[in-house]
Design a protein around this nucleic acid. Structure first.
Length: 134
DNA sequence: GCCAACGTTGGC
DNA sequence: GCCAACGTTGGC
C-alpha cells in the first residue's frame, strides 16, 4: 500500500465536492512526472487531498478506486478514479508542514508545482497525527 | 497582482 | 541538442 498527495484548487473541485459526489474521475493531469506517479497508483492506495490557492492545507483523505486508465479527453494521458475516505478532523496547513521536522522534507515543499506526488508512510502517519490535534 | 520556479516549445 | 522565449503553477 502506497500513499500519495494530489492537489486541487478548491474553487474548481474541492474535497467537499468529492464527499458529495462519492467518487470522481481525477483527470486533466498534463505533466509527465505527475503522470508517472498516477500510473504507479494501485487500487486501495490512500491519497491526501491538498487544497491550493487561498486554503493551502491538506484537507481530506481519498482512496484509489481504479488504477490509471487513459484520460477520456486525451488518451495520451491518464486518469484515476478516487473516492473519499474522510475529511481530516482538522486540516493540516502548509505553514505547519514547513515547520514540522517530520514533514519538512515532503515533496510538497521541495517540488511545489507537482500536482501528483508520493508521500512516505511516516509522513502520512504524521499528517494524520497532526490532524487529530486541535 | 506579482513573480519564482518550473515545464514546454520551437528556432537555430 | 541547446537555450531563449513563453506559459503555468501556486505561494506570497
Amino acid at each position: 500500500m502506497n500513499y500519495w498527495l494530489v492537489k486541487t484548487e478548491p474553487e474548481t473541485y474541492s474535497f467537499d465536492k468529492l464527499l458529495s459526489d462519492k467518487k470522481t474521475i481525477w483527470d486533466g493531469i498534463r505533466n509527465y512526472q505527475a503522470r508517472n506517479y498516477l500510473k504507479d497508483m494501485k487500487k486501495g492506495d490512500w491519497v491526501l487531498v491538498y487544497h491550493t490557492g487561498s486554503a493551502k492545507e491538506i484537507y481530506g483523505i481519498a482512496k484509489v478506486m481504479k488504477p490509471a486508465f487513459p484520460d477520456p479527453a486525451d488518451t495520451e494521458w491518464f486518469a484515476i478514479e478516487l473516492a473519499p475516505v474522510q475529511k481530516l478532523k482538522s486540516a493540516v496547513p502548509l505553514t505547519k508542514i514547513k515547520t514540522d521536522t517530520k514533514l519538512n522534507s515532503m515533496v510538497l515543499l521541495k517540488n511545489s508545482r507537482l500536482s501528483v506526488q508520493p508521500v512516505t508512510t511516516s509522513e502520512f502517519d504524521r499528517i494524520i497525527e497532526l490532524s487529530e490535534k486541535h
